[in-house]
Design a protein around this nucleic acid. Structure first.
Lengths: 128, 128
DNA sequence: CCTTGACTTAGAGTCAACTTCAGGTGTTAC
DNA sequence: GTAACACCTGAAGTTGACTCTAAGTCAAGG
């Protein structure tokens, strides 16, 4: 599959795909004789994986390290697992913080809704 | 309360506190005769609010707009509510994406755990 | 009186993660 | 066969959100 197709199908710009390869976020993709990238199944799964991880905020640096370990074969399985466990913890922490923020937003929105109702009749000064 | 105290108590650098004020993320803080910032209760609640919202990824720009509306009084309550509702939607979307990523991480970690067990005896090539 | 240290400002610098550019080669449509 | 377009590379530019610097004011301690 050509880079342009991968780009449109997965919503990642060709620039970003090349960038990812350059920095080692995905291993080198096979090329045609004339040097044009040809993504295979595995390449695409890797792109998807990176996209997913990045969208959740895992740092590029960590993913590069992880991918490098993958390239080194089964002897790195424990190290890889450690990275994923660490990132999972960080992810859970971020989600918990976001949940707190969500609670506060919900509360504020509720207060505003009451304020609007009141204001319609009474114009009472309220919240922030 | 002095800026240094606010900084240590809330884990935000004095630079960042001044920066927030400069860009309008918190309204101007009262000053002593000699021009030194003196944070009152309300200022601190605002700092906490901004910290919380920022930690969940709400953009500075949006928060500036929100704070500006707060300064304009009760006539902006509906507009403020709209902003919060919009940001709530965005936050929920981010959290859902993160949950997906978490599921994948959990799955991968599980597979790795099995792989480690197997490898101890059989050295079977496995996952990625 | 002088130094230490907290504070002030405007503005420059940094960082992660892209994104765009300049300059060039290869491929396809008519 | 030539125009238009997709691709290549390395490097410079951009963005959001800080973070630091330079140059200066001011109050307190020795």
């Amino acid at each position: 599959m050509k880079i342009a197709e991968v780009s449109t199908q997965h919503g990642i710009s060709t620039d970003t795909l090349r960038y990812y390869e350059r920095i080692g976020l995905i291993p080198p993709v096979n090329r045609s004789e004339s040097g044009i990238r040809d993504y295979n199944e595995l390449d695409i799964r890797r792109v998807e994986f990176v996209k997913c991880m990045r969208s959740a905020g895992l740092p590029v640096e960590v993913l590069i390290e992880y991918i490098a370990l993958v390239q080194q074969g089964d002897k790195t399985i424990e190290a890889r697992k450690d990275i994923l466990v660490e990132q999972r913890e960080a992810l859970i922490a971020r989600m918990e913080q976001m949940q707190k923020t969500l609670d506060i937003l919900n509360h504020k929105i509720e207060v505003y809704e009451k304020a609007v109702l009141k204001n319609e009749k009474e114009m009472i000064p309220v919240v922030e």
